[in-house]
Structures are given as C-alpha cells and as structure tokens.
Design a protein around this nucleic acid. Structure first.
Lengths: 125, 125, 125, 125
DNA sequence: GTGGTCTAGACCACC
DNA sequence: GTGGTCTAGACCACA
C-alpha cells in the first residue's frame, strides 16, 4: 500500500479498512486478516497494524475474539456510512465553503464548476 | 487567538496574516506589527511568530527591512488571491469531491444542499 | 455458552464447571461430559476444554480414569466451597473495599445500598 | 513505581494518573509532567507513557497543547469521580455480590464483616 | 496460529 | 525542550 506523507500511516490504514468495510470488501460479521498478514501486505510493522485495530475497536467497527482474530461488527457498515455522512455535512462541507470564501470563489462560479463535473468526474475519482 | 489542534500554530498564524493582507487589514506597503507585539497579542512564543514571518517571507508576502520591521510586499494581495484560487481548484475542490464520494453523497444531493445554502450561509460564513 | 472478553475462555469454563460441582449439577463421583461433548455444547475448540480439565485436575477437583473420562473428585464440593470462601475474604473483599474507596463511596453510603438490596436482590442474582 | 502483573503496565499508569487527578495531586488546568519525565520516574519506556496519554486524552481527562505538553482538563476531576461512582454501582458492586453468592457468604455474614471493618480498615487501606 | 505488551532506539515536526 | 510515529525485536498468554 502507498502512503501519503500528510497523515500518519496508522490513520491511513484506519481509513482504508473503514472504507473496505463500507464498500463490502470486508463484510459484516466476517473475520478480517490477521495483524501479521495485513502488516506483510501493507509493508508495515505489525505494531502499526495493532494500533489501527485498537482505533477501529474503540470506534466499535471491529470486535475481537480471543485467539482467533478480529471480526467486522454486525452493524459496522451502517454506522460507518451514517457517521461519514454526518461528518461530511457537519465538518467537511462547512470547511469547504469557508475555503471557497477565502479563495474568493463566488457561489455562481462554484456552481458552474460543480455542474461541469457532474456526474463524470465525480463518479470516477 | 484561538488555535486548532489539528494544524501547527505557526501555519494557523500564517493563514491569519495572509487573510488580513488579502482583505486589506494589513495594506500593501505597510509595516505589520512586530514579533513581540504579535506574540503578546496571540499568546504565543515569539519564536513561533518568527517562524511565521520566515514562512511569509519565503512566499514573498512580506519583506524585511533590517532594524525596522516587516512590511507587506507591494503585490502581496494580488498574488495571494491568485494562489488561493489556484490551490482551491487544484487541491481543495478535488479533495472535497473525494470526501463527498466516500460519504456517499450523490451529486444531486450535494447540489440540493448547496442551493439551499446559497447565497445566505455562504456569504456570511 | 457466552463468554466475557475480559477473561480467558478456559478460565471461564473452569468457573462454570466448578460452580456446577458446587451446586450439585455434577455430583461427586460422577463422570462429567467428555471433552468433545463440552466443546460442542460450548462452541469452543476441544483444546480449550482440555486445558480446562488440566486446570481442574491440578486443583484436584476432577480425576481422570484413562480411557473412560473425567470424574468429580469425592471431596470436590467441600473443598471448592472452602477455597471460594477463603478467596472471598482474602482477595475479593479487600479489593472491593479498595474500589469503594477509590470511588469515594463512604461506608455509610455503602451500608445503605446493601441494606436496600438485602435480601431480595442478593438472593436472586 | 511498582507494577502488578495482572494488569498491563500502561493501564496501571492510567489508573495511577487518574487517581492523582481525582485526589488533587495533579490539579485541574495544570500541566502534567512530560512523557520523558514520567517515563524516567516510573522506570518505563516513553512509548508506554505515550500510550497512557493517548488513553487519557481519548477519555477527555487530559488535553494537549502543541509543543508544550499535556494539561489536566478543566472538569476532569468531577467527571472522573462521577464515572468512578457510576462504575462502582453498575459493575463493581453487582460483581462483588455475585462473588459473595458463589462463595456462599450469606447477607448477614457479609454485613457483620462490613460492620467490623467500619470505619477503621476501610479508611486506612 | 492468534492478539497484546513492552523495550530500545531512531527520526520527525513543532514551540 | 515538547509530543508523535514508526520500526525491530522480544516475550507472553491464549485458542
């Protein structure tokens, strides 16, 4: 896996696994790969994966079964999608509008750009 | 001044001063307050202000006159606005669309929200 | 059987079987179900039951008759009850009082709660 | 600092610091010693302290100021005492009564012991 | 095999 | 000086 330097690796892995649960790559109730497997696959130290798992567990996205591994929580997908959407409207969108204002992008200018992108660019990103 | 823990303090001050130049609070050619004044006003270590000034200077937004202080560069405002707009389209907007996709916010849903907000919320932010 | 994630599974099964001997579900001298039976019944790996049996045997609560199975020791019940009571006064009660102190629960406050619970709640738990 | 083998070191340090905040050793709003200081004082690796701080921060008991250190949250003490008391009644007390029942300690027997201890032992523990 | 903890040590950005 | 992240490697209990 390729990592971006702006964000810590373990948080990028948190995002990565969260998205895999959201899009069904890791289905609800299923076991996710072991710490060592993921570490090898992502070219990262097992401790880093462990930290990721701690984070996901504290968010109640995954559960642990002793000696067996980590499993996707039953309602993880739904709760992830809900939280993501809420975060989008509560934090991402206002911040975006703030940035638009600082860049002196007028609402009409912005609308024009968003229209042009709809739906092609947006869907393929 | 209140700071956000997600971003380094000196970068938040860079943004703050940059915006003050963009909106004319600090006009072109004028002297900006001294390191000590700003440090006291913002409740921050003078070293942090120095770092801010170094950053602004390297972006050619302010100039130093030895023994006198720092001054807003003649063309600072125009260049700030240009860079801001470019950064908005090159980085902020794509990232925003990416976040929208991850949050499963459809283009039409997004348009609807933006319409509702336009122009009232957006202008007053 | 449902397990608590704070304690190892085999120790939870040890507790479970110990209590069944204490309350007469598994009477003295009788054979207890086989490893495979218990494993199936509890939804657990047979190795885990084996470990449980080893533990119980080392505490002289059960005995093994080769090729036949495990049997409740003749004096298991009496010894379990004695040890439990001793452990309660030596370890559980002091720890409980320590927790009460950390929670700033005064002795009188505690007495009041215990009175209210006695005997109804306590007996039916 | 001396550690108990039944519980992970970082959780024992969490308890230790939490109690120090509860009893006023670390007053609200004050800075707590640095990671390196505590690590040296407790004879532990700085990473272990870091893990402790992450835990305390996620519980909103301490806050971070970039480049300066960690500070006790303004309302940490009150919230700690509330949570502790709630946990005592919700979890510790029921578990204790359950243990008493398993040990076949009758309510009256228990009351007698608690009386005897009141208040001397309890206060000095 | 699984996770979990801890250490030692390096390197970084930031104040 | 402060915290923050990551690696490497060891050791452990548990299933």
């Amino acid at each position: 896996m390729e990592f971006n330097n702006n964000k810590s690796i373990f948080l990028q892995i948190v995002d990565n696994i969260t998205e895999k649960i959201a899009n069904g790559t890791f289905p609800a109730g299923e076991r996710i790969p072991s710490v060592r497997e993921l570490a090898a696959e992502m070219g990262v130290n097992p401790n880093t994966i462990m930290r990721t798992f701690n984070e996901l567990q504290s968010k109640q996205i995954i559960d642990n079964r002793r000696g067996i591994g980590y499993f996707v929580s039953p309602d993880a997908r739904k709760s992830i999608l809900m939280k993501k959407k809420q975060d989008f409207y509560d934090r991402v969108l206002p911040e975006f509008l703030h940035q638009a204002k600082l860049a002196r992008v007028t609402p009409s200018e912005l609308s024009k750009h968003l229209e042009k992108l709809n739906p092609a660019y947006y869907e393929n990103k």
